[in-house]
Every structure is written in structure tokens, then in C-alpha cells.
């Protein structure tokens, strides 16, 4: 993390931000198309990356194609800045660009994330890049790409509605915990990537740009600023985010954030903790705890 003192060795070996300029241009072009058609999955030529497909190569390619010398990058994995994946990706970008990274959500211009959207509301000009394992929301219902493409083209989403109906009949409620299917500006059904329901309302009419990259499946899609994002829900079964009644973060005391449940083996109790570590840290600092 002391990139400012010693010049990373890779800087002379690789092109700025690892990818060659032709690749970057292609990814940017596809990104522009994705922004122009909110929720539509744009195919792109996913490059071979120094991490395995399925480990965030889609998000990483978006990040590398977009990053400039003036950017500040934040990388989070399931809300945490310190997990192995987040650290590795951050180091790769540092070593091939020489730019500075941060854990402060407000200070970052570009944020790459997996499975979470930061608790702190993002502002205009910030870009959130999400890593997507399965970009096709209909894939688990309909395995044939030919058919799902036609369903998107004709806006025929009755199969997805039917799956949600069956869920209610079988379990009394919609049991989709993550990747909740949403409609982008009343047109394309899209998967918001495996973020919890908690984060879905943050997509609606947001000030920032959301980009979704699926490296293995070779798709890019986007939710541009101030786009309507509606989770599918029945008139008598409205969409609701997760609620843990009475629970608060054991570190910062927050009750208004997405909490993880931790079993304390010693006491046998259930403990709760903010999933967004940077936000939790900041709250503790503000309250003079840390």
C-alpha cells in the first residue's frame, strides 16, 4: 500500500491499467451502449485476466478500462475493504496504474464491488462497478440463451413472474434473497448481481452510475443515473428489504445498515455487525470510539 514511495515494478512492463488500448476502447464502447440502453446486456469480448474467470474479471475489466490518472479507486468485497479478493484486485490496479486507492467511499471516484452497494449514498460523478456472476436474470428459469434473448426482445417476463408466484404459493412469500429481479426503466429485466434486497432501493433514481460486468458470461450492462429501478412484486405482496428486528451492530451500534449475523461460539449468542466495514469504521471514528 505504499505505492507513493516506491514505483511499482509493473508500471514499465505493462500498458497503463494492464489492458491494451484497443481492449479498453472496445470495453468503453460497449459500456456506452449499455448506458444508452439501461438494463440491456451488451456482449463484449471478455479478456483473459490475471485472475480466474468468476473472480471478478468483468468488474476488473470495466475498472481498468475506465480508470484514469486522476481517479481514486476503492475496492470492496461483500462490503469489506480487507478481504483477500478486494486486496488483490486493488494491488493489481495500483501496480499497473500507479494511482492511489482509498477505503473512504466519499473520496473514491471509482468503486469496484462484489455483492454490496456502500451504505453511504453515492453522489453524481461516482461510478460503482459491480462484479456479476450470472448476468441473465432468466437463466435459472430458462436455460436456452436463444429463448431468453427472445423473451427480452419481446419483454415477455411471464416466466419470471410465474417463478415468483410459485415461490409465494410454496413458501408464503418471495424467497429470493439476492439478485432480486428488477425492471430497468420499465423495459429490461435485469439481475442487480448478488446484492441483498437491502441494496435494491439504492439503484432507483440514483445520482451515480452503476455498471455491471460479467467476465465469464461476457456481458456488460448499466443503470445510468436517475433511472427507475423497480423490483418485480405483486400488488398484494410488495417488495420489502431484510429486517432484523431489534438487532444493532456490535461495533458501531447502527440499526440502519445491512448487518451480518455472527455466532459467538464462546457465549452462544448471536451477534450482529455492519457488512460495510468502511462505513462502520467511519461511524466509530465520528463517535470517538476508534
Amino acid at each position: 500500500m505504499n505505492g507513493s514511495e516506491t514505483k511499482p515494478v509493473w508500471l514499465d512492463t505493462y500498458n497503463f491499467a494492464f489492458l491494451d488500448e484497443g481492449s479498453k476502447r472496445e470495453i468503453r464502447r460497449k459500456t456506452l451502449k449499455a448506458v444508452a440502453i439501461p438494463g440491456y446486456q451488451v456482449p463484449f469480448a471478455s479478456r483473459e485476466m490475471p485472475i480466474a474467470r468468476g473472480w471478478g474479471t468483468g468488474g476488473l475489466q470495466l475498472t481498468l478500462a475506465l480508470i484514469g490518472r486522476g481517479d481514486r479507486l476503492k475496492v470492496i468485497d461483500q462490503g469489506s475493504d480487507d478481504s483477500v479478493n478486494a486486496v488483490s484486485i486493488r494491488r493489481l490496479v495500483e501496480n499497473t496504474t500507479g494511482i492511489e486507492t482509498t477505503v473512504d467511499t466519499a473520496a473514491a471516484t471509482l468503486i469496484q464491488t462484489r455483492h454490496r452497494i456502500p451504505e453511504q449514498p453515492l453522489r453524481a460523478g461516482q461510478i460503482l462497478v459491480l462484479q456479476v456472476p450470472l448476468p441473465e436474470p432468466l437463466r435459472l428459469i430458462e436455460p436456452r440463451e436463444e429463448v431468453t434473448r427472445r423473451q427480452h426482445a419481446e419483454m415477455d417476463y411471464s416466466a419470471m413472474w410465474l417463478a415468483l408466484y410459485e415461490d409465494i404459493v410454496r413458501w408464503g412469500d418471495i424467497t429470493v434473497g439476492h439478485s432480486y429481479p428488477c425492471l430497468a426503466h420499465g423495459r429490461y429485466l435485469f439481475s442487480p448481481s448478488p446484492i441483498p434486497r437491502w441494496d435494491i432501493p439504492k439503484l432507483h433514481q440514483a445520482a451515480c452510475l452503476y455498471l455491471f460486468g460479467a467476465g465469464r458470461e461476457k456481458r456488460i450492462y448499466a443503470i445510468p443515473p436517475y433511472t427507475d429501478v423497480q423490483p418485480l412484486s405483486f400488488d398484494d405482496y410488495p417488495f420489502a428489504v431484510e429486517r432484523l428486528a431489534g438487532a444493532c451492530c456490535r461495533l458501531c451500534g447502527s440499526t440502519s445498515t445491512f448487518l451480518y449475523e455472527i455466532d459467538d461460539a464462546a457465549s452462544g449468542q448471536k451477534l450482529y455487525q455492519c457488512s460495510d466495514t468502511a462505513y462502520c469504521q467511519q461511524r466509530r471514528q465520528e463517535r470517538g470510539q476508534a
Binding site: 415477455d156 411471464s158 413472474w161 410465474l162 408466484y165 409465494i168 405483486f234 400488488d235 398484494d236 405482496y237
Partner: peptide, 9 residues
């Protein structure tokens, strides 16, 4: 559902 009835009841 195909005809746009989105009310489980």
C-alpha cells in the same frame, strides 16, 4: 400473468 394480472389473491 401473461395478461398482466399481478395480484396473487
Amino acid at each position: 400473468l401473461a395478461a398482466g394480472v399481478y395480484h396473487v389473491g
